[in-house]
Lab assay of single mutants.
Amino acid sequence: MTEYKLVVVGAGGVGKSALTIQLIQNHFVDEYDPTIEDSYRKQVVIDGETCLLDILDTAGQEEYSAMRDQYMRTGEGFLCVFAINNTKSFEDIHHYREQIKRVKDSEDVPMVLVGNKCDLPSRTVDTKQAQDLARSYGIPFIETSAKTRQGVDDAFYTLVREIRKHKEKMSKDGKKKKKKSKTKCVIM
């Protein structure tokens, strides 16, 4: 069974824990209790493949930012979460993405942009803004509501699919490099 290491990042209060708990335990946590770091595991079937999701729910508070490099190193894919009623959390996505790329030393890291709290009427981040940002990053965008469960499975499952595509691409690139290195030079 394939294991996928997913990391949920975003500013404090955007609903990272609520999304994760909704996926794992099928219930909505409405009281806000700032996370330092929590880890969850769940076995699911995605596109006919049974897999184990190892999900790291991270601290959004700035005082825990020193811990970010460590979990970013171990993560295979990242859910970059903002709240649709919090423009600052949307603007912060850029910083999370840049930090992930720096730590992973790669421009090509599996990510999904997630606009959470889409059940709320007080939207300050337009869907088109988020779609445009995701398009500019070359990553999928999904709106979710941890409260109603809308888009929750889709967000995590899409990230797994992005990781699969990335692994497939990397193995193809690896095979191309191996083929090239088999060419021999004969000096007579």
Rank of each mutant, 00 (worst) to 15 (best):
T2Q: 11
E3Y: 05
E3M: 04
E3P: 14
Y4H: 14
Y4P: 02
K5H: 06
K5Q: 02
K5E: 02
K5W: 00
L6K: 00
V7L: 03
V9Q: 01
V9F: 06
A11K: 01
G12R: 07
G13E: 09
G15M: 00
L19N: 10
T20H: 09
Q22Y: 02
Q25P: 13
V29G: 14
D30Y: 06
E31V: 08
D33Y: 06
D33K: 07
P34I: 02
P34Q: 08
T35V: 06
I36M: 11
I36P: 13
I36R: 07
E37I: 12
D38Y: 07
S39P: 08
Q43Y: 05
Q43A: 06
Q43H: 10
V44G: 09
I46F: 05
D47R: 03
D47M: 01
T50M: 04
T50F: 03
C51G: 06
L53G: 04
I55W: 07
L56N: 12
L56I: 08
L56F: 10
G60D: 13
Q61A: 11
E62D: 12
S65R: 05
S65C: 10
A66R: 04
A66I: 11
A66P: 14
M67H: 13
R68W: 11
R68I: 02
Q70C: 05
Y71G: 12
R73Q: 12
T74N: 13
G75T: 13
G75K: 02
F78C: 03
L79A: 02
L79D: 00
L79I: 12
V81C: 09
V81I: 07
F82Y: 11
A83Y: 01
T87N: 12
S89F: 02
H94G: 02
H94W: 12
R97S: 10
E98F: 00
Q99P: 01
I100N: 05
E107W: 12
P110D: 01
L113N: 00
V114P: 00
D119S: 02
L120N: 03
P121D: 13
R123H: 13
T124I: 09
V125A: 12
V125W: 10
D126R: 05
D126N: 10
T127Y: 13
K128T: 14
K128G: 13
K128Q: 14
Q129A: 13
A130I: 13
A130E: 04
Q131R: 13
Q131L: 10
L133P: 02
R135P: 04
S136L: 06
S136K: 14
S136F: 07
I139D: 05
F141M: 07
E143I: 11
S145E: 03
T148R: 05
R149Q: 03
G151A: 13
G151F: 07
V152T: 06
V152Q: 04
A155S: 03
R161F: 02
E168M: 05
E168T: 11
K169A: 11
M170R: 04
S171M: 14
S171E: 14
G174Q: 13
K176C: 13
K177F: 09
S181M: 10
S181V: 03
C185M: 02
C185L: 12
V186R: 03
M188D: 15
